[in-house]
């Protein structure tokens, strides 16, 4: 691994690479037409992402955390264009992606981002050789021509992620989970992107392998100046890799801030609850506020602030009025209690 003891934190110039504004995505989860007519059921909509806004400065890592069903993966898929937003917009380097109509116009932008997926066993086509998998973006975007040039480049990419150039001849099933994730990263880097969306890239891996992948991702960020949108449910991993962290709950971004600040001084009651819930390796035996309840169904989320049924500080306003984003320090919080200043300071320093 590179021994560069580069100072942590954004190499950021302050320039915004990706900007997400009032992003929303609704899925139609109704029964099929015929069943609806026969059984008299109404259409059912699921709001997976609701009014989410954030910016990612170039060269930094922005993470989204939350429990299953909070919409963090949907945000990732909206950003890379796998889904079309129902509301709001995604701007990449100042270009509103929704305004681009044709595939042809989109292509030069598409090569500037890439995505790494969670499941290393499903994210590589089992019928393709590794070299072809890694070369697919190069071939598709026509970045290099000639078999030899492509082969050389694929070899370089594989070596960049700690594999051997000869591994290109093999099929994915010949590799372990960690090695497959390296192949995914090599492929993601193939089109020389500026921005990589990582959807739970290490949650299917063992801790020691996770450490290898996280270190690799950080090294690549330093060396290539990459910008990451990192999706995870593991707060410790997120703390470790992020410059900024956003916490999502039932489709809404309830709080985002500088990573260290968010973990040392969480504002939103949900963030506090999450931090409280993580099993602690330090065994400090800190007193914890037990969290009751579970995440409600996203099809019929509670009115007002979605977190109000589980929140110890909820009052009448929380149950009826959706909180607006409130600027706090570098970040934002959506909480009436924070706004009104009736939230006690967290106990831990």
């Amino acid at each position: 691994m590179a021994e560069v003891a580069a100072p942590q934190g954004p190499v950021a110039t302050g320039e915004t690479l990706l900007s997400v504004r009032d992003l929303g995505k609704t899925f139609d989860v109704s029964a099929p037409f015929l069943n609806r007519v026969l059984q008299g059921q109404p259409r059912v909509h699921l709001t997976a992402v609701d009014d989410v806004s954030f910016d990612i400065p170039r060269g930094s890592t922005f993470s989204l955390v939350g429990e299953s069903g909070c919409g963090k993966s949907t945000v990732a898929r909206l950003v890379v264009g796998l889904y079309r937003p129902s509301q709001g917009r995604v701007e990449f380097e100042g270009t509103d992606l929704a305004r681009i109509q044709t595939r042809r116009q989109m292509a030069p932008l598409r090569r500037k981002w890439a995505m790494i997926f969670q499941d290393p066993y499903a994210s590589l086509n089992p019928r393709w050789r590794v070299a072809d998998i890694v070369a697919e973006p190069i071939r598709y975007h026509g970045l290099l021509s000639g078999g030899q040039a492509i082969r050389t480049r694929v070899g370089e990419l594989l070596e960049l992620v700690g594999l051997s150039a000869l591994d290109g001849e093999k099929y994915p099933h010949e590799f372990s989970g960690g090695q497959r994730q390296r192949i995914s990263i090599a492929r993601a880097l193939a089109s020389e992107p500026d921005f990589i969306v990582c959807d739970e890239p290490t949650s299917a891996l063992d801790v020691s392998v996770q450490a290898q992948i996280l270190n690799l991702m950080k090294r690549l960020q330093r060396e290539l100046g990459l910008t990451y949108l990192f999706i995870s449910h593991d707060l410790a991993v997120v703390y470790h890799i992020s410059d900024y962290v956003g916490v999502m709950y039932l489709g809404r971004l309830v709080e985002w801030s500088d990573a260290r600040l968010l973990f040392s001084n969480p504002r939103h009651p949900y963030t506090r609850m999450l931090l409280d819930a993580i099993p602690d390796l330090e065994m400090s035996g800190r007193a914890r506020t037990p969290v009751g309840g579970e995440v409600p169904s996203p099809i019929a989320p509670p009115a007002g602030c979605h977190f109000n049924p589980r929140c110890p500080f909820a009052d009448e306003r929380c149950r009826s009025e959706t909180p607006m984003a409130l600027k706090v320090g570098v970040g934002e919080v959506r909480c009436h209690a924070v706004e009104e200043g009736r939230l006690p300071e967290p106990e831990s320093a």
């Binding site: 994210s123 590589l124 089992p126 697919e136 598709y140 975007h141 995914s184």
Partner: peptide, 22 residues
């Protein structure tokens, strides 16, 4: 719905080609 198909779509591969190749 598998991730390798989504990975191809992220690059922008045309649906017909995704179906045929992947």
């Amino acid at each position: 719905n598998k991730e390798y198909v989504q990975a191809a779509r992220v690059i922008g591969v045309r649906p017909a080609l995704v179906v045929f190749r992947h």
